[in-house]
Simulated assay, not measured.
Amino acid sequence: MSRATQIRVGTVAAAAAGVIALAATRPVSAVPLLVCFAVLLGIAAVAAAWPGVDDISVEAAQLRRDSEARAAIRTDSGRHRTPTPQSPHSQSPHSQSSHSQSSQTRRHRWDRACTHHDGVLAAYGAYELDPAMLLRYPGMWDLSAQEIMDFHDALELAGTLRTEQFTDDSICQEYIDSIAILRSAWHRADRFARSTGTSQLGDDDARDCRRALKLLDHANGTAGAERAAYLQQVISTVDRLTERGIVAKAPTIHAALEAQARKALSA
């Protein structure tokens, strides 16, 4: 117990003893006695309520602990604060290296996408450049088939997104994604055309396709005027099928067949 606390306790005890003594002896009349009681009781109350050094020290220590705790929280919060984004010029060499590697990866993927795109165009071109493919698999132009519609939609999208040179931006990624869709759509369309053949056509249309294929075979086995005659019949049949919407208009095939017929006549 501190010195101040001892004094406070002694004062309270003395005041209490005085009250008891006055109550027992009553040395004065009633009014003065009441005044003495009030004074002694007031002294005792003030001494009891007055804060001691120990109480102040406890409060000060608690305040200090609270202050240190808040400071620790602020320090810890500072350690975990999200760093301010740096400009590209202030990036570390490691960050710049990672960005460069990422760009090179996208460039590699873009190059592969272009190669796959060209492969699909070449495979599809066979249907438009080879008269035998045109006549044997007319399902490739059946726009009522979901597989064919999906392929043409994917082909148009890829063609829209393709750029002449690599650009490291969002369009590059969109183009790469579109080629994945295009390849899948092409495989389904090609499988549909090859699996259906002329089975989806009406009797007359299917018969014309088969007849034109036979005429083409005969033309490849002959020469001169006979070859030219067979080729002209193939051209006429293909023209009729094109007009009816059975096969796509193929000006390259038409021109190639006519050139072969003229060459056969002049031989």
Rank of each mutant, 00 (worst) to 15 (best):
E174D: 15
E156M: 10
A123W: 09
R136T: 04
S97Y: 10
T84N: 07
R79K: 10
T167C: 06
R183Y: 08
D153W: 11
I171Q: 15
P131S: 05
R191F: 09
S184I: 14
Q146F: 07
S77H: 03
P93I: 05
T105K: 15
H116W: 15
L135D: 00
R106G: 01
W141T: 07
D118T: 09
D76F: 05
L121E: 10
A193I: 03
W186K: 02
S102N: 13
D168L: 03
R79I: 08
R81S: 09
H99A: 13
G125Q: 10
A189I: 05
T163K: 12
A145K: 02
D130R: 07
R136W: 08
A154R: 01
H89R: 04
Q96Y: 09
S170G: 09
D142A: 13
A193N: 09
S103G: 10
D177T: 14
A145C: 14
F166D: 02
D177F: 03
I148K: 05
I171F: 07
A154Y: 01
L157R: 05
R162N: 02
S144C: 05
H117P: 01
R191H: 09
R106V: 06
G119T: 07
E174H: 07
C114T: 14
R112S: 14
D76K: 05
F151P: 01
G78V: 04
C172M: 15
I148P: 02
A126Q: 14
D142N: 12
Q86T: 06
D142Y: 03
W186L: 02
I176H: 01
P83V: 03
P88L: 08
